[in-house]
Amino acid sequence: MDILYFAWVRERIGLPKEKVETGARNVTELVEELKAREPRYAAAFEDISALRVALDQELSDFDASLEGVREVAFFPPMTGG
């Protein structure tokens, strides 16, 4: 699946997008997998209450299922307008 990062999440991880093979069933499990990879991921996902997640471009929750999902995006709360 494609994982996208925006704003300071992108800066902390150091890339905007990557492909990941995962067996994670939900977003929280995916986050735990990513955190275990390298310190930069652990730093980006240190406080998930400061993050938002979108599944296939729809705002979602960290306990949401990843079944059938092709694109996951992590980012801080939005500041549009």
Binding site: F6, L59, T79, G81
Partner: peptide
């Protein structure tokens, strides 16, 4: 738009 459109300033 302020908090539900994916923009970051």
């Amino acid at each position: 738009l302020k908090s539900r459109a994916p923009f970051w300033k």
